[in-house]
Design a protein around this nucleic acid. Structure first.
Lengths: 225, 225
DNA sequence: TAAACTTATTGTATTATAAAGATTAAAAAA
DNA sequence: TTTTTTAATCTTTATAATACAATAAGTTTA
């Protein structure tokens, strides 16, 4: 056992966020082993000797949730000596925003989406990790239109605004939001319209050639003092 | 040996930046052991079982450089399997900007400041770590006036602009820089003037009640596409 | 089939901020 | 006293952010 030889264990834990059923949701797995058996947790696992942290995160995510081929970003490393009740486990947390339509999550009783606004009790410090990932997502959203990662390939501007409002947890002005959005690099107007609604159909848009670091793409104003 | 029992070792490495002799400089220590014996490296060391990562970073920094009581921020965790030539060492990197006048660095042949523009060959992936810390510092500077951490307690606006220009590696407009700076929360105008120059004395300023996350404090415009 | 209803879409005036141009001020050196 | 150098201020212009209300395009209902 690792804790007998007095060294650390290294894990990766992954926060996967999406928008589903009109709510921001996080992918959780139910733990099958102690500690925290039967508690929900973000997917995670040990880092192998032969792989780097990014590779470990991708592998673990695939193993636990069948989610593959998405862009994971390192979030923060959590290393409190008491974060694991039994041994000393330092975890490198990753996160990703994904389109619900893009992933092959086979939800089971042990792998499921949960609304971030109503999380069940979580194992370890996973609540803190999720909260930190939300904070970072908000900061990112102020810099570049990462919300597109949460939307379907074709989306209406209202859907996009809803995504922003869900993450930022505040109402945005529809006219000003649109004005900024349409100047965003990579956004393309389609000659298609939404059919789902029973009201006036909305024009569909898509993103191509996204440069996430494109400074031109800021479009949510920072709050002023 | 750790590598015989096939587990990871965890270290912390700390990038300390300051402005000295009109240049951005980083604190390096010369390694006394293999691997990379006699090569320069950023100060680092193993994380103990009883301490969290922040505590480990502070302790290691104190031990290696005598620097104490400064605000360290977690930067990124580097975990490439080959970053250490002998064993598997994952390192959690920290960084800090400090005032040269505030620290009791006793520079010796083995502990010294080096200009980031002319680094010696470095151990491990420490060049990459320093470069990443510079990138992050630039991003932070666009958000809040962290450069004050590099300046003496009393400073002229020209000194502050020089600090910005050194970090951002570009020239700034003096008039616009001043206009933005003087609206920054926490900046206080003093009734004292610089004496060093043989030209017109410049007014001295100081920072009090810094809120690093104060959104009001942005004052370097982002580049537009 | 007209009226009511719901959501989508658009424009303008005002204010704030950024960038660029030009001038004045205070000291030391010549 | 003039020149030189750096500090500091003021103005204009351009760009971006904010607040704010009416119209358009469909469906539903009476």
């Amino acid at each position: 056992m690792f804790n007998e030889i007095k060294t650390h264990e290294i894990t990766v834990d992954i926060v996967i966020l999406t928008i589903k059923d009109n709510a921001l949701q996080v992918l959780l797995v139910k733990r099958s082993n102690e500690p925290f058996k039967d508690k929900w947790a973000i997917p995670g696992g040990y880092v192998r000797m032969s792989e780097n942290l990014d590779e470990a995160a991708m592998r673990v995510l695939k193993e636990k949730t069948n989610v593959d081929n998405i862009y994971l970003e390192q979030l923060y490393t959590f290393g409190d000596p008491l974060r694991h009740p039994v041994s000393r486990v330092i975890t490198c947390a990753y996160f990703a925003l994904i389109r619900a339509e893009d992933v092959n999550v086979i939800t089971t009783p042990d792998v499921a989406w949960h609304k971030v606004s109503a999380l069940p009790p979580l194992a370890f410090d996973h609540k803190e990790i999720i909260e930190y990932s939300l904070k970072r997502t908000r900061e990112r959203l102020e810099m570049c239109p990462v919300a597109y990662q949460l939307l379907n390939e074709k989306f209406t501007l209202t859907e996009m605004q809803k995504a922003y409002e869900m993450i930022m947890e505040k109402k945005l002005d529809k006219r000003n939001f649109r004005k900024k959005v349409i100047t965003t690099e990579g956004l393309r107007e389609l000659n298609e319209f939404s059919k789902s609604s029973s009201k006036r159909p909305a024009r569909l848009y898509t993103f191509d050639n996204i440069k996430l670091n494109s400074k031109r793409a800021h479009f949510i104003k920072k709050a002023r003092g």
